[in-house]
Design a protein around this nucleic acid. Structure first.
Lengths: 247, 247
DNA sequence: GGTCGATATTGACCCAGATCAAACGGCTTG
DNA sequence: CAAGCCGTTTGATCTGGGTCAATATCGACC
C-alpha cells in the first residue's frame, strides 16, 4: 500500500532533488561538494506524502529504505505487548527516519506524521552502494547514525536524572534550537504534538506536562496557549536545567 | 598516553586476529565469509589492555577508532557540567565501543573498564576504507550501529515507562541473555558493577536497587550475595515484566 | 590479622509526580 | 449555532521511590 503514494522521480522533478533542495545543509548531503550532491540526486528513489495521523512505517514492516523528511513533522513510538508505549522521538524537516530497521531487516518502531508531510525515499541498498563510491557520503551517513546514538544518550540522561520541569525545559530548548536551524523563530513556535505525546517522550504524565507549562508561564519563562508556545526567558529555562539539584 | 599500552600487531599475533578469534560470531565479523574475515585481519590496528577502573577513552577525546572488546567488561557514562551523571551502558566481550564519537570527531561519553580488560583497536578510517570494498563488512557495521540505536530505544522505554522492579528484572534478564550468548551460565553470574552503577543505568537510587534485589530474593526469584547473582525463576522475572501495570 | 574506606543492606520518613476527578476550551460536524 | 468530542487545565489525594541515617560486610593495604 505504500507504493500507491510514491511519487516517482522524473526528469523534471529531479530538479528538486538534493542538489536543489534547500534542506541540504541539514540533511544527508550536508558537507558534500556540488559534484557529489549531483551524484546523490540518483539516490532519492521517490517522494511520498504522508497525511497527518498516518504511518510512514510500522514496527514489523520490512526494512527497505530510510527516509529524509522534506517537510512536515513526525513522531516515532514503540508499543509493547502489554500495552505500554513510548514516544522515542520527534523528527522535523531535514532529519532522517528509519535507521532503526537496518539492524534487523524490519522496522522496530512506528513512524507517524503529526502533520501533513512529505518525505524522500532513500532505498537503503542504493545508499550503501553509493556510499561505497562517494567517501564523503559514507562518512556523512555514519555521522548521522552516530548522532542518533548520541541523541538517544541525551534522552536517557534526561529520563534517568532530570526532574519534570527540567525535562520540559530541555525539551523546549531543544525544539527551539532545531526550529532556529530551520530558519524559524527561536522564541515562538507551534507544538505539533499533544501533551500526552510530550509526556510519553519525557516519561511524564500529561497532567504533569500541563502543570509544568502553567508553572513556567506563572514564572514568566514562557507563554502558552494550547499548542502555541512563546519563550520569554530562554536564559531562565537554561538556568533551570543546569541548576544543581542534589549535592 | 594511550599509545603506551598499545600492542602492535605482529605477524605472529595476527594469527589471533579476527579469523582466529572465538568471538567472531558476536563481533564485527559476524556473518562474513572466511575469505572476507581474512581481509578483516588487517583491520585490527592493535590491542590494548585496560586495567579495572581505567578509561578506554573520555568524553572530549579525539575520535580515531572504535573498539571491540576482546575480553572484560566496560561501562560508558556521561557527566554533565552540573555534576549529574548517568551510566549509558554496560558492554561485554564481542561488543563494540566508541561509536558515539563518529558524529562529532570526539567522544561524547566516558568508557571505563569494570574489570581488567583487553580490546581490539579498529582505526575508523581503515574500517571505512575496508567497508567500501567489502560489502558484507559495510552492511554488518551498519547493522551494529543500528542495533545500538534500537538498544537505546529499549533503555528509553525502560526509563520512561517501567517501575523499579520491572527495570531491574529487565536488566537481569538482559545480562543473563548476553552471558548465555557467550557460553556462560544463564542462571548464575557475577555482577561487575556496583549497586550505584546499576541504579544510575536504570534511573534509580542505589538503595532502591538493593531493596529490589532483596525483594526478588524474598519472593524466590533470585538469590543474591553481594555481586553474585543466581536466577532461580526466570519465568517469574519475565512475568514481572509483561505484567499489565496500568489500564 | 587488624584497620580503614568502599560497598551493601535495612529502616523511617517525606515528597514529586501519579492518579482520580471535574470542568473548560476549541475543534469539527450536522 | 448547537452538540459532541478531544485535548487541556486545575484541584485533591495517594504512593513509589527518593532521602537521610544507621549498621553491616567486604576487600585492600599495611
Amino acid at each position: 500500500m505504500p507504493s500507491q503514494n510514491v511519487i516517482p522521480i522524473t526528469l523534471t522533478s529531479l530538479k528538486a532533488a538534493c542538489s536543489q533542495c534547500n534542506l541540504r545543509e541539514l540533511c544527508l548531503p550536508y558537507g558534500l561538494s556540488e559534484a557529489e550532491i549531483a551524484q546523490l540526486d540518483h539516490l532519492v528513489g521517490g517522494r511520498r506524502k504522508v497525511k497527518r495521523g498516518h504511518h510512514l512505517y510500522r514496527a514489523g514492516d520490512p526494512f527497505e529504505a530510510i527516509y529524509a523528511i522534506k517537510m512536515g513533522f513526525f513522531k516515532t513510538d514503540i508499543l509493547l505487548e502489554d500495552g505500554r508505549d513510548q514516544v522515542t522521538g520527534f523528527q522535523m524537516a531535514g532529519e532522517i527516519l528509519g535507521m532503526d530497521g537496518i539492524g534487523t531487516d524490519f522496522h522496530t518502531c512506528n513512524s507517524i506524521a503529526l502533520e501533513d508531510s512529505e518525505i524522500c525515499i532513500i532505498p537503503f541498498g542504493q545508499l550503501e552502494h553509493l556510499s561505497r563510491e562517494v567517501q564523503t557520503l559514507q562518512r556523512h551517513f555514519h555521522q548521522v547514525m552516530s548522532r542518533e546514538i548520541v541523541r538517544d544518550h541525551g534522552v536517557m540522561m534526561l529520563l534517568g536524572t532530570m526532574r519534570a520541569e527540567e525535562r520540559l525545559a530541555a525539551f523546549l530548548l531543544n525544539l527551539s534550537q532545531r526550529f532556529t536551524a530551520r530558519g524559524y523563530s527561536p522564541q515562538e513556535f507551534h507544538l505539533r504534538m499533544t501533551r500526552e505525546e510530550i509526556g510519553s517522550y519525557l516519561g511524564l504524565k500529561l497532567e504533569t506536562v500541563s502543570r509544568s507549562f502553567s508553572r513556567f508561564q506563572d514564572d514568566g519563562l514562557i507563554s502558552v496557549h494550547q499548542k502555541h508556545v512563546r519563550i520569554l526567558d530562554a536564559a531562565g529555562l537554561k538556568r533551570l536545567l543546569n541548576h544543581q539539584t542534589a549535592l
